[in-house]
Write a protein that binds this DNA or RNA. Sequence first.
RNA 1: GGGGUGUUAGCUCAGCUGGUUAGAGCGCCGGCCUGUCACGUCGGAGGUCGAGGGUUCAAGUCCCUUACAUCCCGCCA
Length: 590
Amino acid sequence: MTDTFSMHTHTCGELRADNIGETVTLTGWVWHRRDHGGLIFIDLRDRDGVTQISFDPEHSGGTAFHAAETIRSEWPIKVTGVVRERPEGQSNAKLATGEIEVLVSHIEVLNTSKTPPFQIEDHIEAGEDIRLRYRYLDIRRPKMMANLQMRSDFTFAIRQALHDRLFMEVETPALFKSTPEGARDFLVPSRIQPGHFYALPQSPQLLKQLLMVGGVERYYQVAKCFRDEDLRADRQPEFTQVDVEMSFVDQDDVMGCIETVLGEALGKMGVDVQLPLRRIQYWDAMDTYGSDKPDTRYGMELHDVTPIFSNSKFKLFASAAADEKTFVKAINAKGAGKWPRAKIDKLADVASEFGAKGLAYIAFREDGSVTSPIVKFFSDEEMSALRTEMDVEPGDLVMFAVESRLHADEILGGMRRHMADALELPREGHDLLWVVNFPLFHWDEETKRYEAEHQPFTLPTETDPDKIMADPLAVGSYTYDFVMDGFEAGGGGMRIHNAEMQMAILKMLGFTEEGAREQFGFLLDALAFGAPPMGGFALGLDRVCMLLAGGDSIRDVMAFPKTSSGSDLMSDAPSEVSTKQLKEVSLRLL
RNA sequence: GGGGUGUUAGCUCAGCUGGUUAGAGCGCCGGCCUGUCACGUCGGAGGUCGAGGGUUCAAGUCCCUUACAUCCCGCCA
């Protein structure tokens, strides 16, 4: 594509053998400079690629050649010259432009540069803190540039796919009402109304439901979301969701539409997507993988071995078998049975991180022997049944959890992930699936009340509020999480579109009628004015881009991310503000 | 809120049981070099060892406090 809105005629990634003989103008940054005394090569880099430009005293004249002797790394320059074929045997296969070079006749130094604090190279990895302090230099690295370009391409592909299906992009406010039910809100004090606060939205959830009541029917937004919680490699206080909502639909309509859009957009990024995506029931995911966001590219599945030990001499297992609420579950980490005992014993510490009190295990050594603190209690029949159930081979490590169903699943799910990393199990390609039908509620021991598993606006599969009250934990919901490579990459559900049902659910969650009205009155009002059946979805754009980039931190696909203490090392935000500013918003510091 | 790891030259790191003048690679500066491409080669500059306190004849090294970074748990409807 010819670009006339620029100082250059071509980008640095563009020229090929076909261009030989043309006079071209390039702009970019001086990357590597190779000064041979009478001949100087420079790798000129822009966002698109690298072109070798060469200077010799004969063709470049005194001025250009002299300039080439004095310019330094990262100076932006503009050069004009003739594209020529490289001499026999001098082409560079590592470079897309490696067959040619530009023999410079004229150079314009557009600016100088200080020596960068770290080298702008993909193969030299600087510490992340200095990269963040000078993020604008870090972005010049080809890998970072490629990440941002990929993110832009993917976002555009999703926009296109949604636009093609008649979705309307609507912007919702960033200054909204605090609804402190989920994550902690970021608060913004109001100057005009002293003592009152806006909150930055944790997601546009309520607003998109109101758009459905407004008749928008198909909405989307590439929306910034804000949550004031601790950071992780895959969690930032502000992040981006592709937020989608549809009305006059059922769950299959929404899931079908979303997976079509995702398949189209991911397909453009080179991901092989087979539709329809696999659907796993929530409880099946928990029972089999110990996770509601399983990575199914490797096995190590959880097995319920409770029945094997119903008459065991090992009291812990036998009493679990006698108690219908307690289970003996196991996983087989193939290969870890070769580990030395000390290393295996340390796994108990890992298990305790996931809530286990201890870790029972059996290591099956390659010489046929067995290392285990518990195996002496087992009968031959029990061992044989266990070997069959767990598909035991020499070199295997079988680990047990004896807990309530959910607790055992969570512990072994955590161990499964840990062992997959420790054993460096191969995980090829991308793993895409739906986890569906989450329970509507779970019981929170700390607050001693029911909490919404997904969100308080999720449509229950049970339509009778009285039946929901009777056995809340048994109620399912119209929910679906999009899981990619073991990450929760998106999630959605059908929404309650009936005001009475919404109020009933809020009461179940511990709200009084007045409290519910105070916080969600505008939603309850809206639902009462002919709200249509609706459902939607939100895609964690940062996480998906991270996985597409093959990275393990969303910071690598964000232009200006924050550190784990929420700082921006470049601008030094958050920073103190003046007393005057505080006074304007009627605040005084403690 | 809790646990792990780290902080030494501009960058990435090494530095043993405490013991002379704290090293390497890259980068930077200068010389040489007309086919390199992470050019080569010769020479040079560059360090309050994150900060504060302590133990000791002696601390980069041991102890305490603290800051920052990072990973994980809690948290993230």
